[in-house]
Design a binder for these strands. Structure first.
Length: 322
DNA sequence: CATCAGGGCCCTG
DNA sequence: CAGGGCCCTGAT
């Protein structure tokens, strides 16, 4: 599908804002629906029934932020839809989030202070809808990064739509409920394994309205958590990521998996990853960051992965099996 | 060649 | 609450 109609909108995020660390998270695996280079991000969206190809450009600075958003579509977009889309973008990338409160509290912390200084303006957030994030979460489970990327790619090729805009091509997600007519056996034949069942059931729950993202955003944390855990194939690890990335609970920390335990042990206590500190000790360390404890982890984590982009980190390579 | 564990989760006992 | 099974893949 070729998208030729262009709408241009300017967004002014709250300051400070750092474009690259917000629009590119090197810790996330790459997928065929986006691309990043310094100062520019391509991303497709399935939004309110439309296929959108979007280019975000950094046209400001950390202290005077500005983003130019080019929205490509097959036909001209109604103003209302554009406004709603921009609002959604501001939500997903937390463009109005006030980082100053967080910074003031922890600027003097010996471990975290230098990182928030270095990563000044980084926003948490994620480009995908809840439904899309769930699919990614399922595809991540119990396998290596390479396999996750393969499964995501094959899903795009079978159920996504290839969009062309501004001379580039990217895959776009299918809509929730679109897998209704797809038999579980077909997903299995695409080498999704036992995840086929989880994907089918999750898709079905959205199609039937058992889960509705906009409603869920209005609910409290416990309701969100319960509803997400009720989805077949979704457990505490995936829910942890969702509550932070999609529902923006900056303090949600409930679960530290063994591989994360090793990485945090090295980062915080400089422990050999083969002899990590106890999970208990990690919880008690992170608890000091109260309402921002998961945000602190996000900062440490992203800092580490940005470092890795510039120069491989031997102890980390062994743990991530990229 | 065979075996095993991986950026979980479900189900059973 | 512990532990086996699940799909497939690459490492050993």
């Amino acid at each position: 599908m070729i998208l030729e109609s262009v709408t241009i909108v300017e967004i002014k995020p709250s300051a400070p804002f750092h474009f690259d660390t917000t629009f590119h998270k090197p810790a996330h695996f790459t997928s065929g629906d986006n691309y990043w280079e310094s100062g520019i991000r391509w991303q497709t969206f399935r939004f309110l029934g439309k296929y959108l190809g979007v280019i975000f450009r950094n046209t400001g600075s950390v202290e005077i932020p500005k983003i130019e958003v080019e929205i490509y579509s097959s036909r001209p977009l109604a103003n209302d839809l554009v406004a709603e889309f921009i609002q959604e973008i501001q939500y997903r990338y937390n463009l109005n989030f006030d980082l100053n409160h967080f910074y003031q509290h922890f600027a003097s912390d010996t471990k975290v202070g230098p990182v928030i200084k270095k990563m000044r303006g980084l926003r948490p957030g994620h480009q995908d809808s809840l439904y899309e994030y769930l699919i990614i979460g399922i595809v991540l489970q119990n396998c290596t990064v390479r396999r996750s990327i393969q499964m995501m790619q094959i899903l795009f090729e079978h159920y996504g739509t290839l969009l062309e805009f501004a001379g580039k091509q990217f895959w776009c997600f299918w809509d929730l409920g679109d897998l209704k007519t797809v038999p579980e056996a077909e997903l299995r034949s695409l080498k999704l394994g036992y995840r086929a069942k989880s994907i089918k059931k999750t898709d079905d729950s959205f199609a039937k309205g058992v889960v509705n993202e906009n409603e869920l955003r209005q609910q409290d944390l416990d309701t969100q958590k319960t509803k997400l855990l009720n989805l077949y194939g979704i457990g505490p690890a995936t829910v942890g990521y969702l509550l932070f990335d999609v529902f923006h609970h900056w303090d949600y920390l409930d679960h530290i998996s063994p591989w994360e335990q090793k990485i945090y042990s090295k980062l915080i206590f400089d422990q050999d990853p083969n002899h990590p500190v106890t999970v208990r000790k990690l919880f008690s360390y992170f608890n000091r960051f109260g309402p921002y404890k998961q945000l602190v982890i996000h900062y440490l984590w992203e800092d580490l992965w940005w470092q890795r982009k510039n120069q491989p980190i031997p102890w980390l390579e062994k743990l991530i099996r990229a």
